[in-house]
């Protein structure tokens, strides 16, 4: 059995005083990391492989330039067997914003790998599109379930027993036919830290770079229908009273405010 896991390197804004240009946050204020949701998807794949006695291969796929290899090594260190990195100079930001482009690339990878199961995160923490997994399933013409917070794979019955986390503490109990794409919600498991041994092994694992030609994807399959017209820091609608000063002073203000609200232990 084969599991394909998508792993995106996401940007985080790590500076309080970041600046934005038209297209987004200026590069110098960004840091990069593995997408939080994908950490859980990776763990689902790796722990499933460990539970199965027969061999399950776990392959990760990342769409991104060479600098994403740092993140990919992390994924390999957590137990993924090998990685694919899709990149081509034709892949600009406009193309990557259009989910159909990503779905076309990932579908081409799936075609090559024939996975039984594809795991993606529910969304990426940077642009929060939340569309890649389900768009990929529809492109591959296979079954799917979005926002899964429990997954039990019954390979013999070719079924996944899944739970979808709905609103308000309710879950949908769903059976999905394999092959399938599942989008994984945070909290489904406890993502591991890479061990020293894992980090060493990751150095020897393969990261296969694939371009459009390798994937037989035509430049006309790259869609660019969404364009960013402007980026801004939202105007604050805050009417909050902010207490200022050293911690002992702000704590005094807070304590007084809480007493005024009638909140105290006595």
């Amino acid at each position: 059995m084969k599991v394909l896991v998508t792993a995106k390197q996401v940007a985080t804004v790590d500076d309080d005083d970041f600046e934005v240009g038209v297209d987004g946050v200026d590069e110098q204020f960004l840091e990069y990391d593995l997408n939080e949701w994908d950490e859980y998807a990776v763990e689902s794949g790796v722990s499933f492989a460990e539970e199965c006695d027969d061999d399950v291969e776990v392959v990760s796929v990342t769409i991104g330039p060479e600098q994403t290899e740092e993140t990919i090594r992390m994924v390999l260190a957590k137990g993924v067997d090998r990685a694919i990195r899709v990149w081509d100079d034709a892949l600009d930001e406009d193309a990557l914003r259009d989910v159909e482009t990503k779905a076309a690339l990932l579908e081409a990878v799936a075609e090559r790998e024939s996975p039984d199961l594809v795991l993606t995160g529910v969304q990426a923490s940077d642009d929060g599109l939340g569309a890649t997994g389900v768009a990929l399933a529809a492109t591959m013409d296979v079954a799917w379930a979005a926002v899964a917070n429990d997954v039990e794979i019954d390979a013999d019955a070719e079924t996944v027993h899944a739970r979808r986390e709905l609103e308000g503490g309710l879950e949908e109990v769903t059976d999905v036919a394999l092959p399938a794409v599942l989008t994984i919600q945070t909290g489904i498991n406890e993502p591991r830290y890479a061990s020293l041994r894992g980090i060493r092994q990751a150095q020897r694992k393969e990261i296969l770079p694939l371009g459009l030609d390798d994937l037989d994807v035509d430049a006309t399959q790259l869609k660019r229908r969404l364009s960013v017209k402007s980026t801004r820091v939202p105007e604050t609608t805050s009417t909050a009273t902010l207490f200022e000063g050293e911690a002992d002073e702000t704590a005094t203000d807070l304590a007084e405010m809480l007493r005024d609200e009638g909140v105290t232990a006595e």
Partner: peptide, 24 residues
């Protein structure tokens, strides 16, 4: 809707229709 169920079908509808999708 960009609800949990919306996450579960909106991207598929856009794909099937071949239309651009803007979420959330």
């Amino acid at each position: 809707p960009n609800s949990v169920n919306g996450l579960d079908y909106a991207p598929a509808v856009a794909t099937r229709l071949g239309l651009p999708y803007v979420s959330d």
